[in-house]
């Protein structure tokens, strides 16, 4: 672990190579660069999650802490090679005018040829693809549920600015729900007449789930507010009854469907490394999310 104070990208890059050689193996098995854009308070937790995710996808992790933009530009870096094969980590703290030119620091540190993903663990720019750091990535990962500002509109704003490669962890959190709903409809073919999604009041995931069902089933989905946590219920009404998944406690869910016994199924709320791991598995455009984002983004504010 090395602390570098008041340095340039070239010095950070040289230290990454030195650290790799010191660790005994100059081999680079990393498959992508993950840029984590965060503030000081969230930095540690975000880097921990990114490190855990890089166990599945060996990555060069570049944490970028955007500090106070006033005064002379100043770049500090904290460099280490990951243990357990998880690649290299540099946490780079910017303050002063260089904060507005963060991409000039990051660009020289990207791995050659390898894909780049940019992740904002909390607040993201309104238009991630137009952001100078965001523009470096083919994958831009936001998290509408973790936003601290403009919470109620952030998902819609982001969707409105959708560019290929954008994705939101609120969508990733739905994969298990969606898989279970799709598997249930495999067993119960037939038109879905109506649907309902129950979740806590602020739940971008629930908004996306409702929008997905509306898009796929061509019906209007009722959104019900419950006390949570997260999504607590989804039901699809068919000609011969109701397929219903209820998850009151955020862990074990019950699946009820016509003509079948109730079944319990584990539907845990997933942790950040797991979500990031899923995001990094595919780095091309998620076309299903694209269609959804266009729909959510063009919608006017609900009254």
């Amino acid at each position: 672990m090395t602390e570098l104070s008041d340095v340039t990208s070239a010095e950070i890059a040289a230290e990454l190579v030195r650290a790799r050689t010191r660790a005994g193996s100059p081999v680079m098995g990393m498959v992508l660069t993950l840029v984590v854009v965060t503030d000081e308070d969230g930095a540690e937790a975000a880097m921990d999650a990114a490190r855990a995710a890089s166990r599945e996808h060996p990555a060069r992790l570049l944490g970028v802490v955007l500090g106070d933009g006033r005064g002379r530009g100043h770049v500090d870096a904290h460099v280490r090679t990951g243990t357990g094969g998880s690649g290299e980590v540099a946490l780079i703290r910017l303050r002063g005018e260089v904060v507005r030119h963060a991409s000039s620091v990051v660009l020289p540190l990207l791995l050659p040829d390898a894909p780049v993903a940019v992740w904002w663990p909390a607040d993201a720019p309104a238009d991630p693809a137009a952001d100078p750091l965001g523009a470096l990535g083919q994958r831009r990962i936001t998290d509408a549920a973790a936003a601290t500002r403009r919470r109620t509109t952030v998902l819609r704003t982001q969707c409105g600015a959708y560019s290929p490669g954008d994705t939101d962890l609120a969508w990733t959190r739905l994969t298990r729900w969606r898989a279970l709903l799709a598997a249930s409809l495999d067993l119960h073919p037939g038109r879905v007449r109506s649907a309902r999604v129950g979740a806590e009041a602020h739940s971008p995931s629930a908004d996306l789930l409702a929008a997905w069902l509306e898009l796929r089933l061509k019906i209007t989905v009722e959104r019900v507010t419950t006390s949570g946590p997260g999504i607590t219920e989804t039901s699809l009404t068919l000609a011969d009854g109701e397929v219903r998944i209820t998850r009151p406690g955020g862990g074990l869910a019950t699946l009820s469907s016509p003509g079948r016994p109730d079944q319990s199924v584990a539907l845990p709320r997933r942790e950040l490394p797991d979500l990031l791991g899923e995001e990094l598995r595919r780095l091309d455009e998620d076309e299903v999310y694209a269609a959804l984002a266009r729909r959510v983004g063009s919608r006017r504010r609900r009254t």
Binding site: T172, T175, R178, A179, L180, L181, A182, A183, L185, D186, L187, P189, V192, L213, R216, L217, K218, E278, R282, D286, E287, V288
Partner: peptide, 22 residues
């Protein structure tokens, strides 16, 4: 508009895992 008649399935939706039937 749906794989195998299931409107929730989409061949472009590569996140959805294949869950075995009952």
């Amino acid at each position: 508009s749906g794989v195998g008649g299931n409107p929730l399935r989409d061949e472009r939706d590569r996140r959805l895992p294949r869950i075995a039937g009952p």
